[in-house]
């Protein structure tokens, strides 16, 4: 059975997303919201929501996996490839981690090589519609082979870095990478 047909170990399919907002629902003002891409890069960038809509280049169907054990199958994801954002920012050759900050002050950390996965996405639309506030409008991360806590919602900063630093759930013992197929739930 191929990966696209099977669920990762320990996961069970459910009909719809369970919504988590561990630090509450942030208020989003699209006029002031910006996505900043920086850190160890030679070309730090700032995007408005409209900038991102204009460069959206990727659409695919993939399952979403929460570390608690539920999965939602066949979700349509649309947005800007993370590879494209990285290519524009030009991270230094020593970058190993990507630290993500959100409007609600949530943080997470992603290995650079996973960030560059061909399906890594800054999501703007889900199942044919713009993200809802609950799903992370205006933009969230999605990397299909990583557990959902890496898919930070309401993203405001993508920071390329050489040093590892715990994000919110990593500081609470969850895995540095969180690969769903290797069942990397805890450190």
């Amino acid at each position: 059975m191929s990966r696209s047909d099977s669920l990762p170990p320990g996961q069970k399919a459910i009909p719809n997303f369970i919504i988590y907002r561990i630090l509450g629902q942030p208020e989003v003002d699209l006029n002031s919201w910006r996505l900043r891409v920086g850190g160890y890069v030679s070309n730090p960038l700032t995007y408005t929501y409209n900038d991102l809509l204009e460069i959206a280049d990727t659409s695919y169907v993939s399952d979403f996996h929460c570390v608690t054990g539920w999965s939602v199958r066949n979700v349509i994801w649309e947005g800007v490839s993370l590879r494209k954002l990285a290519a524009e920012a030009q991270p230094s050759r020593n970058v190993e981690w990507v630290y993500v900050r959100s409007l609600d002050k949530y943080t997470t950390v992603i290995p650079y090589e996973d960030f560059l996965d061909e399906r890594g996405l800054l999501v703007l639309r889900i199942n044919g519609k713009p993200l809802s506030l609950e799903q992370g409008f205006p933009a969230r991360i999605f990397i299909p082979h990583l557990y959902g806590w890496k898919s930070a919602k309401w993203v405001t900063e993508i920071i390329f870095t050489e040093e590892y630093r715990d994000g919110y759930w990593e500081a609470l013992g969850y895995h540095q990478r969180g690969n769903v197929w290797r069942e990397e739930r805890f450190k």
């Binding site: 561990i22 630090l23 609600d104 002050k105 949530y106 943080t107 630093r165 715990d166 994000g167 919110y168 990593e170 500081a171 609470l172």
Partner: peptide
Amino acid sequence: ISSPEALVPK
């Protein structure tokens, strides 16, 4: 023991 910055919001 640690004092992670990531948990300050909580």
